[in-house]
Computed example of a mutant assay.
Amino acid sequence: MEQVIITSINKQELVDIIEQTVKKVFGSAKNEVAIPNEKPIGVHRAANILLLSGASIYRKCNNLEIPHFKRGNRLYFYESELEAYLKAGRKLSNDQIDQLSDLYLKK
């Protein structure tokens, strides 16, 4: 293993180097969820959006099936994340599957 000796570097330069390396490794811009000015909603509103009972919401959160966060004994959600959760479960029709397979085979 090659040894690297860093000399005459100030604290801020070292912090910048570490931040750049972490961003490069983890791709921070891709992993961050940008939710501009969106306010969190509670369980009852989430249940109305997902058309589920409150008990189902708690069960799905316990099983880590839906995106949520928790402060104390309360669960919070973002509407945009719940909508993305619904869209992720979308099933294609047979016609859509046929169209996609035709496009794939033409390549």
Rank of each mutant, 00 (worst) to 15 (best):
G89I: 00
L50W: 08
N62F: 11
G27T: 08
M1F: 11
A46I: 03
D16T: 04
K11D: 14
I57D: 12
P67M: 08
R90Q: 06
V43N: 13
S56P: 06
N94E: 02
E38V: 02
I41M: 03
A29I: 13
S56R: 12
A46E: 07
E19I: 04
V25F: 03
K106Q: 15
P36N: 14
S53N: 08
K87E: 14
V15L: 15
N73G: 15
L92K: 02
A46T: 08
A34L: 13
I49A: 06
P40A: 00
A88I: 00
K106M: 13
D102P: 01
I17T: 10
N10P: 06
P40R: 00
E65Y: 01
S8D: 15
I41H: 00
N73M: 09
I41Y: 03
A46G: 05
F69P: 01
V4Y: 12
F69R: 03
E81V: 00
Q99P: 00
E19V: 02
I66H: 01
T21A: 11
V33N: 09
R45Y: 13
F26K: 07
H68G: 08
G54I: 09
F69K: 02
K106I: 11
E19R: 12
K24L: 12
K60E: 15
L86W: 04
T7A: 08
A46C: 06
E38I: 03
N63K: 11
T7W: 01
K11T: 13
L82E: 01
T7P: 06
S28Y: 04
V22F: 04
I18L: 12
I57T: 09
